[in-house]
Design a binder for these strands. Structure first.
Lengths: 145, 145
DNA sequence: TATAAAACCTATTAAAATGATATGTAAAGG
DNA sequence: CCTTTACATATCATTTTAATAGGTTTTATA
């Protein structure tokens, strides 16, 4: 029941891009250094994000990535759903209609459905902008002390 | 982000025991057959549950298991926390205080904390008795149709 | 126009986790 | 004493995870 590095790194990469929106295109090299993540591994995560309209790309010298939208238009749920493949806590929820033989009298199905719902609702309720705001608030508090 | 078979099987085993509370001690053989789970694999799950006061055991002929408490005294959260090791969505939440170097200015930490909270709250809000009740309601509806 | 820096692409791999099976030993009721 | 059960430990095949490696292609700029 763990979020993989793919999901966590993708989220950190997009937060990093959001924090550097004004710097034009940002290279993976810079992101990898700031976030202490392997650049080569990030290269594998990018195409997953590119299946959806998440990034704008510039190849070649001075190239890199920037966000395709403003940070308030990304939810954590969307990012993790892309990178994790699915956020469902059990595989049988991944395919509708349910393919499980015992689906009709499965005592636990409603538990998993409910869990799936609260996970999605929570993660879809948080945007990149929310994370930026909280981060700035955090820094402000640190400065006060 | 999946619940493993250990957790799912443990839950189904305890529901099975709850449904057969009146039958005295219930053998793993019977549970395995009814639930279509390997008996040998269930044998590995039992000691995990036994770390907490979940089961009553009777060895030898006519032996087996029964619940240590009434079904309303077990939450799904308790069962899954035992069998899954932890329900935290990221490893850094498993140890307090947080061992992560970057913990103090980690932008994503609060996201994971919040996710952890909603997962726990949801799963701790469901008891075995709730599952039994819903199952009986389901059967009643099927009979009506 | 050469070149360095960037994205892009594909293969390989080491380690860990998953989901079991196999082979026993110990206890206890009939 | 014998059968049935729990209990214990080892082994194993497969998959997933989390990378690393080694290239090719694109492109701004000197």
């Amino acid at each position: 029941m763990k979020i993989s590095t793919k999901g966590r790194y993708a989220l950190r990469m997009l937060i990093d891009l959001a924090e550097h929106q004004d710097s034009g295109y940002v290279s993976l090299k810079d992101i990898a250094q700031r976030q202490s993540i392997s650049k080569k591994y990030l290269e594998q995560i990018v195409p997953i994000l590119n299946r959806s309209d998440i990034l704008r790309t510039s190849r070649g010298f001075q190239g890199g990535y920037r966000l395709a939208r403003t940070p308030d238009k990304y939810t954590v749920g969307e990012i993790l759903r892309l990178t994790e493949g699915s956020l469902s806590p059990v595989a049988c929820l991944d395919h509708e209609p349910n393919e499980c033989q015992n689906c009709d009298n499965c005592a636990t199905l409603s538990v998993w459905r409910g869990l799936y719902r609260v996970i999605n609702e929570y993660l879809d309720g948080i945007t990149l902008q929310d994370i930026l705001d909280q981060q700035r608030q955090q820094y402000a508090n640190d400065y006060m002390i």
